[in-house]
Design a protein around this nucleic acid. Structure first.
Length: 262
DNA sequence: AAGATTGTTTTCAT
DNA sequence: AATGAAAACAATCT
């Protein structure tokens, strides 16, 4: 599920349902083999405490309090944070559950095991240590454009580099490039300053729009790439055809006419 | 049935 | 040294 808007959605669920309640236990779910989760000692640090804050930076989600340990959650390809009531039981593939007084539950669902939950002391320090770039919605478009650099790698790879800009992934980088008419494999350094600025502005608009529609993809405008993101589909903006290519190890979808390589 | 997947990390190469 | 590309990771779905 997770690029910046989807991660923000998860953060809001935590904020709405898991703050200011006393944690009574932290339990591992079924089949936690090869999922990066906190050990018994770390889990016990949360007992008797409360989460008072849920933060996000790029795709990283944090829950904790001013005085206590925090969890840093990476959703991976298919992870999500869920809140439910004890009486309803956990969703499938729940790997770790925080149990609160009164019956509320916060769990990390991760079917494909590419996500993680780790215990950290401070989110700001974590962001610094992991080298994450500025959050894609908090920084200005000018700052983000600067961060793209002028290297010889593909612009799509630069957009998705979490060390340059935190929060943009495969889907929304494709969307921003599509809307700007830039080929995904264009060399970053071959673009003009104006093109890079337009690109970061567009990426911000794209992600803000997804947030505004609560990540309900059925409400995405029809002239966006997303509803047509299949090889062979007709481009909704020109007479071209949607094709795919591999860029930076990921599958990029693009229009072979208005995003033709320069 | 082979190939792809809204991600991150490590390893290899230039 | 630093930048960029490729592979590895897991499980499910088309």
């Amino acid at each position: 599920m997770p690029e910046l808007p989807e991660c923000e959605q998860n953060r809001r669920r935590v904020e709405a349902g898991a703050l200011n309640r006393t944690i009574t236990a932290v339990r591992l779910g079924n089949d936690t083999k090869s999922v990066d989760l906190p050990g018994a000692e770390e889990r016990s640090r949360f007992e008797g405490r409360q989460f008072t804050e849920a933060r996000r930076h790029g795709k990283a989600i944090f829950a904790g309090s001013a005085t206590g340990p925090w969890i840093a959650v990476s959703l991976g390809m298919t992870g999500s944070l869920r809140v439910w009531d004890e009486a309803d039981g956990p969703p499938d593939y729940t790997r770790i559950t925080f149990e609160f007084e009164g019956g509320a539950r916060l769990g990390f669902r991760c079917p494909r095991k590419l996500g993680s939950v780790t215990v950290i002391e401070d989110p700001d320090r974590y962001i610094e240590e992991t080298g994450l770039g500025p959050d894609a919605l908090e920084a200005s478009a000018e700052t983000l454009a600067d961060r793209l650099g002028t290297g010889k790698g593909a612009i799509k790879s630069a957009l998705m580099s979490q060390k340059k800009i935190a929060g943009i992934g495969n889907l929304w980088s494709d969307e921003a490039l599509f809307q700007c008419g830039i080929a995904p494999d264009a060399e970053t350094g071959s673009l003009s300053d104006d093109q890079r600025l337009k690109l970061t502005r567009t990426a911000q608009d794209v992600m803000q729009t997804i947030l505004d529609i609560d990540t309900d993809y059925s409400r995405i405008p029809d002239d966006w790439l997303k509803p047509h993101r299949t090889a062979g589909a007709d481009c909704p903006r020109c007479g071209g055809t949607i094709e795919k290519m591999t860029v930076g190890g990921r599958t990029a979808h693009y229009c072979n006419r208005h995003q033709a390589a320069g």
